[in-house]
Design a binder for these strands. Structure first.
Lengths: 157, 157
DNA sequence: CTTGAAAGGCAACCATGTTGTCAATCATGA
DNA sequence: TCATGATTGACAACATGGTTGCCTTTCAAG
């Protein structure tokens, strides 16, 4: 079983994808068919206080430019607003629109459901343990899908 | 704890990334610093019998063109060879080079080590259970990092 | 043989990152 | 007070790794 390690990695990826895909589908059914994880991560980071492009870039560990592009999309799709910061002429102030809030709430609901479904399948204890093990593995590291081609880094699957 | 579901998804992603990143690093130390998961997935698919571009594309669930690009990289970096199929003038026959074999072996070793490290940390029983739970979640679905922007699909994190 | 399907390849495009550079604004210290 | 440096946001150009559409060659089957 020499591939056990690689299979495990793949399984984690598949698990994420399962969540992501099903979540996307459920959100699309609720009318949010124009968001991707990138956008959502950014939205939540903004909600969490990264209310200007530079700060957002730092939180997502991408360049300011990448953040700016994401922000442009988010604004265009009416999830956030963007306006000058009255107290600092250089800065833009990002705020979440009502639609943005709705998206986040819908996301919460959708993923809670997915988790509940999985718990029903294999037991909540087991999932709690898996979660614990994962936390031990990943440590405190920040998570970000945005990071440059993280999905294409070397992984001997 | 309304974010429990989304956090769980994120945790799976982070787990994969941890494996991928550490694996990449270890492989780079062993001299394989020019491979990414895409390439490796493809290499293994080829090893598993997808020995022509069209078949590879089907296995990876990408377009033939995307597969062709990956193949070009793999060939350029000497992980595979490419030559006409004597029995079918349309077809190219892909074969894995010695270097390709080495990469796969190194990958096996590296990931086995990573898994062992995690097991030492939280116990192999727990990991086995997590694996089982994940398999139940993902079902028999094929796994592929290559699939079109799967990482950017909607995921309310 | 014709005719359709499959293989491979090319060009153009899209999404999402990157780097480099720049102007405007702010903050600090001589 | 004001020069200097740091920070912010933006633009252009580029890299990766996908996509679609279209085309030619080769095969296979009536």
């Amino acid at each position: 079983m020499t591939r056990a390690g690689a299979d495990l990695a793949l399984l984690l990826l598949a698990g994420f994808r399962t969540f992501a895909d099903r979540g996307a589908e459920a959100l699309a059914r609720r009318g949010f068919d124009d968001v991707r994880p990138t956008h959502d991560f950014a939205l939540r980071a903004i909600a969490a206080g990264a209310d200007n492009p530079s700060e957002l870039a730092r939180r997502l560990t991408v360049t300011r430019q990448a953040a700016a592009k994401t922000i442009a999309v988010l604004e265009e799709r009416r999830y956030i607003d963007r306006r000058p910061d009255p107290s600092d002429g250089r800065r833009l102030r990002l705020t979440i629109t009502a639609r943005g809030d709705e998206l986040m709430r819908a996301g919460d609901a959708v993923f809670a459901e997915l988790r509940a479904g999985w718990e029903a399948q294999v037991g909540s204890v087991r999932i709690g343990e898996a979660e614990e093990a994962l936390r031990a593995l990943v440590g405190d590291g920040v998570i970000s899908v945005d990071s440059p081609d993280w999905s294409t880094r070397d992984l001997d699957s």
